[in-house]
Computed example of a mutant assay.
Amino acid sequence: MEQNTVQSRRERYLTFFLGNEQYGIAIDQIKEIIAIMKVTHVPKTPPFIRGVINLRGLIIPIVDTRLRFGMDAKEEDMNTTIVIVEVDKVNVGFIVDRVEEVASIDSSHMSEPPKFGNKVDTEFISNMAQIGENVVMILNVFKLFEVDELISLDKMQQHTLMGE
């Protein structure tokens, strides 16, 4: 007897919180997770770009994820973490309130994000996942930035590396 079932697959995601909202990023996009450290401000950058850090000789632009998502800024505490991902060959650090876990999520527990109309941009949410009682928004890190923002992040990394 042959079964005709759709094969579901499990993928791993780092889950983290911003306020009470839980988000996830595919584990294969994450380069490193570090404790919050001193961030050097870079003039003439958008408010959500906190500045840069020097991590073992690499200059990495740091994004305040709360500000990027239109949330209020929050005082850093012992749970504040920087999640470093690679976006279009540029390493970018995202400040998050707290990292939760690496969750293995079955594709059958994923659904498309709701559509809120033309005025609400949810392109950066690739899926919604159900983990227990929580709904986790799975982020598409490539869509968190516009092309010109990525170019300026790359330039910020290059100029700071060259000491300009």
Rank of each mutant, 00 (worst) to 15 (best):
G70M: 06
G117A: 09
L55T: 00
R9Y: 06
N91F: 09
E86G: 02
E123C: 04
V120P: 07
S104Q: 14
T65F: 13
I138P: 04
L18D: 05
S104T: 14
P43E: 01
I27C: 10
Y23W: 09
P113G: 06
E149I: 00
K31L: 11
L153Y: 04
I105P: 07
G51E: 07
K143Y: 08
Q29F: 10
Y23K: 11
G51N: 09
F142K: 13
K155R: 14
V6N: 02
M137Q: 13
K89L: 12
N134L: 09
R66W: 07
R68F: 00
Q22R: 14
F94Y: 11
T5M: 11
K115H: 13
V102Y: 04
V83I: 15
D97F: 06
S126D: 01
E149D: 13
R66Y: 06
I151G: 01
E123K: 13
Y23M: 04
E123S: 15
N79H: 11
M162L: 13
R56T: 10
S104W: 02
I105H: 08
D97V: 05
E149P: 05
D77M: 05
Y13D: 05
E123R: 14
P46Y: 00
G19Q: 12
L153V: 11
I151W: 01
I82P: 08
G24K: 05
T122G: 03
R10V: 15
P46T: 05
N134I: 00
E164M: 12
G93S: 09
M78H: 12
K44Y: 07
I60E: 07
E112L: 12
I30L: 12
E21N: 11
V147S: 13
A73N: 12
K31A: 06
I25L: 11
K115I: 11
K38R: 12
I33D: 00
L150N: 07
T15R: 08
K89C: 02
S104Y: 07
I105G: 01
